[in-house]
């Protein structure tokens, strides 16, 4: 049942400084409201526990895609639509564009933001596996100052993350080191659009002399957090992609992930599909069919 609207408060700060003041003055009391694509669902279901929000939608400081020689930095409010349409992202970070295209529908892509997708901290989010595979770094800001943290260290448990009560996620930095990589992204959901994933796989690899010189793999919907699968990567690094390696990597992945039965699928299905996708990823990058 929908929540009772007068119970909620939404404020609109005029600039970033005022927004940070909400967080600094009453820690834990206020939460940012960006595109609202997750929060409105909870509101409609009567499950939005937090009641005080400030809108960051109008904060120009959090918008835009900045490109330097070393990196591409997405403002936290970059929408999926903006991601989809950006030519550098299409060229160098194609998995992110695919993830954006497969998130929700057009309306959600116009409102939903990359920053929101990260701090909503859903293990089923579509862009985080791509961000993990691309070694993203997060930029956090509070009235006390800014700091950076590797994205792979950010999520600590189901809906838990290293974000202080007074901090706001402002940007996502992607190192431009992807040119020699092969990219593989696949979202498996109940349908082709507007479905939350059952399993989401993002992988990049560099194959040199028929063996794996570099590999980064991340999966969504298979653990309490979106998971960078470093143990599986370790099994693969330096190996040639043959049946033995594939088999060892499958076994490693099955040990590394911890899917559950929920309303969307079963643990068994997720395990099998995750391993099948890993195999498909390895064969695809080996045979050089993709990207």
């Amino acid at each position: 049942m929908r929540a009772y609207l007068p119970d909620y408060e939404l404020r609109v700060p005029k600039d970033l400084e005022e927004a940070l003041a909400f967080l600094a003055n009453e820690p834990g009391m206020w939460k940012p409201f960006a595109g609202g694509t997750d929060l409105m669902v909870l509101l409609e279901a009567g499950k939005l526990e937090h009641t005080k929000f400030f809108s960051v939608w109008n904060l120009a400081e959090l918008r835009g895609i900045e490109v330097t020689d070393e990196s591409v930095t997405l403002g936290a409010l970059t929408t999926y639509t903006e991601v989809r349409r950006n030519s550098i992202l299409q060229e160098e970070f194609p998995m992110l564009c695919v993830a954006a295209r497969e998130t929700g529908g057009i309306a959600i892509q116009n409102r939903g933001t990359i920053g929101g997708n990260i701090v909503n901290a859903s293990p089923a989010a579509d862009s985080p596996p791509a961000l993990l595979a691309y070694d993203a770094e997060l930029e956090l800001l509070s009235s006390k100052g800014a700091r950076k943290i590797p994205y792979k260290d950010f999520h600590t448990g189901y809906k838990q993350m290293k974000l202080r009560d007074d901090e706001l996620l402002t940007g996502i930095r992607l190192p431009r080191t992807t040119k020699s990589l092969r990219h593989y992204y696949r979202k498996v959901g109940t349908r082709k659009a507007q479905a939350i994933s059952k399993v989401c796989f993002a992988g990049v690899a560099k194959i040199e002399d028929e063996s794996v010189a570099d590999v980064r793999i991340a999966l969504g919907s298979v653990a309490p957090i979106v998971l960078r699968c470093e143990k599986t990567e370790a099994v693969l690094r330096g190996k040639s992609v043959d049946e033995r390696t594939i088999s060892a990597a499958r076994a490693a992945l099955i040990n590394e992930i911890a899917p559950i039965d929920d309303i969307r699928s079963t643990a068994k299905y997720r395990l099998r599909v995750a391993a099948n996708l890993l195999e498909d990823f390895l064969k695809t990058v080996r045979d050089g069919e993709l990207n």
């Binding site: 669902v41 349908r191 082709k192 659009a193 507007q194 479905a195 939350i196 309303i263 969307r264």
Partner: peptide
């Protein structure tokens, strides 16, 4: 949200 029916796709 979770009662899925086919889309145009």
């Amino acid at each position: 949200l979770e009662y899925k029916s086919p889309t145009t796709l």
